[in-house]
Design a protein around this nucleic acid. Sequence first.
DNA 1: ATCATTGCAAAAGCTTTGCATAAGA
DNA 2: TCTTATGCAAAGCTTTTGCAATGAT
Lengths: 159, 159
Amino acid sequence: MSEDKTFQPLGAVSELGEEMEAFRFFLKSNGYRVTKEREAIAESILKNHDHFDVDELYLSLRVKTPVSKASIYRAIPLMIDSGLLAEVYLENGHMHYERVYGREHHSHLRCLSCHRIFEFSAPELAQLEKRVSRQEGFKSEGHKFEIWGFCSACQTEKN
Amino acid sequence: MSEDKTFQPLGAVSELGEEMEAFRFFLKSNGYRVTKEREAIAESILKNHDHFDVDELYLSLRVKTPVSKASIYRAIPLMIDSGLLAEVYLENGHMHYERVYGREHHSHLRCLSCHRIFEFSAPELAQLEKRVSRQEGFKSEGHKFEIWGFCSACQTEKN
DNA sequence: ATCATTGCAAAAGCTTTGCATAAGA
DNA sequence: TCTTATGCAAAGCTTTTGCAATGAT
C-alpha cells in the first residue's frame, strides 16, 4: 500500500476534475489544443461563476492567470459546443452566460428592479417541449423559460 | 343624414384604427407627441410586421414614408412601453421584435437551420408563471418560453 | 412661442478579426 | 517541426447620442 506508484491525487484534482476532463476531452477530440488559457478560463467558470459576463470573467482571471478578452471571446463558442456553458440573456448590450456542466437544468426569474436572477426547476417544461415538438414535427434540442417581475425584496422597498 | 358634419371615415381608419388609437393615446397621456414618423412606424408594424428587425422596418418605410434609423431606435422603447411591441430574440447581434397588440400571447419554436420562427400556444405556462411566482414571493410581469431545434422541412434535407 | 422630435453624423460599446509571436502536439 | 492559439490593436456592427433645424401643441 505504500508503493511509489503514482495515483491520481484526488485532492489536487478536486471535484472539478470530472468537468475539466470532459472539456479537455472535447477539445482534443475536435482537434483543438488544450492551452493554459482555455484551462484557466474553464476552471474559473467551474469554480466561481454560475452566472457571469465576459467582463466579470476577464477581471476575475486578471490577478492570477491573465487572459486577453479576445481569447475569452474565442473560447466561449467552444465551451458552448462542449456543453460547459449556455447563453442566458442579454443585458445592457452584452451577453450573460451560465455554467451548465454539473448543474441540473432550471429556469429563471429575473427581477426587473435589482436585476438579480433566481432559479427554479419545473419538470413539466421538458414534457411540454416534447409534446409541442411532436405536434409540430420539430426535432427539439432544448428550451428556455423565463419569468420577469419584481422579487420579494424589491416589492417591499418604498420607491 | 347628408349633412356636412365630419364623421370619422371608417374605411380610412380601417381595422388598424383601434391599435393606432391606443398608441396615440399612450403617447398623449405620457406627454409625448404624435408625429408622422411615429405614426408611420407604428402603422407599418401593425400592417406588415409580425416579426421584424430594425433594418427590415427601416427598409420597408423607406419608399413611402422614410424615417431615419435614429427615430426608429428612439420609437422602439415607446412602443414596448405602450404594449405594441416586445423583444423576441437576438440574432447575429441585432434584436428581433414582434407585434403584440391584437395578437394572443404565444411561444416560439426556432429552427436552428433555416432560422424560421413557429408559434404555438400553451396555456399551462401562464399557470406555471403564477404558481412559481407565488412560491418565490415574486410579483410577475410576464414570461417567455422558447424551444429550439430543427423544423420538419430542415430535418428532411440531405446535408 | 415653446419645447419635444427629427436627421445627420459622430460616438459608444460589445464582439470579431488580421497579423506577428508564442507554444501545444 | 508544423500548426493552432494568443495578444494587441484595428475593424465591424448595432445602437445611442449631441446638436442644429423642424414641427407639434
